[in-house]
Amino acid sequence: MKRGIFLPLVTVLGFVFLYAPILSLIVFSFNESRLVTVWGGFSTRWYGQLFRDPQILNAAWISLRVAVVSASIAVVLGTLVAFVLMRFGRFRSRALLTGMATAPLVMPEVITGLSLLLLFVSMEQLLGWPAGRGETTIIIAHITFCLAYVAVVVQSRLAGMDQSVEEAAMDLGARPVRVFFDITLPIIAPALVAGWLLAFTLSLDDLVIASFVTGPGASTLPMVIFSKVRLGVSPDVNALATIIIGIVALGVGIAMWQMRRAIRRDRE
């Protein structure tokens, strides 16, 4: 497989598939015309409009906050679930935990959203918490369904991992917690990164669940976008997407450059 043409070819085609729509929305963010399907000449007016629209900017900021917080907590909880299921053998609540970590994947979004909404309403009536709904309730909902995704990813990594190292450390008298942090964690780190990215993406993209569990003044970006697409995608939303891609790409570029420098330094 070393010099095969097949792999690079599929990868390139895959990236074309992934980036074609992105390219089109970048192009149309510079479109003079309001209609996203007609080219009306080059213009940056939508960028100006975007920065005058506190609604979109505010929603973007809320979405970002929600996604970072819920992805981070979901990774912790999801990893615990995966670890417990793969390493703890039999324990009393095992079947229950397996079921509860699987079912959120199957639950249609509408049901997840509605059932959590009902839960939050009755919790508020009985416990007084959460008082009203908003960012907190969105975060809780997102953690719950992202957790299941993280668990699947981490579990697959744990399944593919050589346990003998862990066992060796254990035999040498290391405590389980120590083994986990010093040995298991570094080995499954790629899965944690993958899981975090997945959870972050899921949270950032969620429309249905957030629409149910949100409250006044806490509209996420997908909600604002969806409320506008009735009239077709508004070009200022394309402009926002372009800016996000630009910033992330820049960040990645800088990180790459530093990494390459570090590697070169190592060689010298």
Binding site: L114, L117, G132, P216, S227, R230
Partner: peptide, 19 residues
């Protein structure tokens, strides 16, 4: 806040304390 469907609005109203 704005919405684009009667459906989600209705679900939130029927569940109670929409705010």
């Amino acid at each position: 806040d704005v919405y684009d469907s009667n459906e989600v609005l209705e679900a939130r109203l029927l569940a109670g304390s929409s705010g």
